[in-house]
Amino acid sequence: MASLKQLSSKKELLTGGHRLCAGCGASIIVRQVLLAADTPVVIAASTGCLEVATTIFPYTAWRCSFIHCAFENAASTLSGVETAYRALKKKGETDQDMRFIAFSGDGGTYDIGIQALSGACERGHRMLYVCYDNQAYMNTGIQRSSATPLGAATTTSPAGKVLPGKTQNRKDLTEIIAAHHIPYVAQASPSRWNDLVSKAQRALQAEGPSFMNVLSPCPRGWRHPPNESIKIAQLAVDTCIWPLYEVAEDKWRLTYRPKQKPPVEEWLKTQGRFAHLFKGNNQQVIEQLQAEVDRRWEELLEKTS
C-alpha cells in the first residue's frame, strides 16, 4: 500500500473548478480511486451530480478521456470503450496498457442502470465500475432510490403525518454484484482512504469486471454541515450501516472491524433527513433499522468468517 506521501506525487486527473457542492463525497471518492491507477484511464460516467458538475460546456474537470452518454448506461458505454480497446489491440494499433473506470451514482447503478451493469459484469469486460452511493437521486433534488435507507426523508419519501420517511429497507447492491461471481467486488468509504485506495488497486488489477460500492456523503441531501462529510461516512462504517469488505475471487473478507459498534441512532442523529425519527411515535423505525443493520451485519460476519 502506497503512503499518502507517495500518492501525493501522482498527477491528479480531476481538477478543482468543478461545480459539485462544498463537502461533496463524490469528488473525494473519484480522487482516491484515480490515485490507485498506474496506467492511463478512460472514464465513463452516467448522468448525475458528478457528470453534470464536472463537465459544463466548455469546461471539463477531467484531465483524462471522459465520456458521458446517458443515465442508465455507464456500464454499457464503458463496455463499448473496452471493446474498442480490445479491437485496436488485436489489430496492433495500440499497445498502451489502459484501464477503464465508470463512476455512477446510486440512481444510475442500483435502479435505472442495474440491467446494463449486470450485463457488463456477465460479459466479463475488464473494467472497474464505481458506484458513489449518496443514497438518493441528489442531482434532481433528493428523491428516494432503492439505496435510500429505511426512515430517511427525501422529496419523494417525505416524512408526513402518517408516513415516517422511506418505508422500505435499502437494496444490498454489493451482494447482488457479488452474485455475478466477477473477480473483485468491494464496499468502501472515503473516510478510510487507505482501504479505499487499496481496493481500487486490487480492482484495477483484476483480470475482468470489478465493482466498488462507495458511500458518498451528501451535505445537501443528508442535511448535515459540509465539514462533517468524512466524519459521518466513518460513523456509517462504525455503526455497521456501511460495513467495509471485499469479495475477491469469491472469497469474502471483512477489511475493517469497528472496535465498538455504536447504535445506528448515533449516525441518524448527525443528519437532518432522519430528524423526524426522534419525534412522535417514530422510535420504532429506528428499532427496525437497527434490527435490519444487525441482521445484515451478522450475515456478513458469517460470510467473511
Binding site: 499518502l4 480531476l14 478543482g16 473548478g17 461533496c24 463525497g25 480522487r31 459540509p226
Partner: peptide, 30 residues
C-alpha cells in the same frame, strides 16, 4: 486534508503542504 479534499485544493509539493488553492476551495471545512 489533501486526500479528503473534494476540490483538489490542498497544494502539495514534495509530500509537503505548500498552500491552499483559494481559487477553487469552496470552504467546506473538511
Amino acid at each position: 486534508c489533501w486526500i479528503h479534499c473534494p476540490d483538489s485544493s490542498i497544494i502539495v509539493e514534495d509530500a509537503k503542504v505548500v498552500g491552499i488553492d483559494y481559487d477553487h476551495c469552496k470552504g467546506c471545512g473538511i
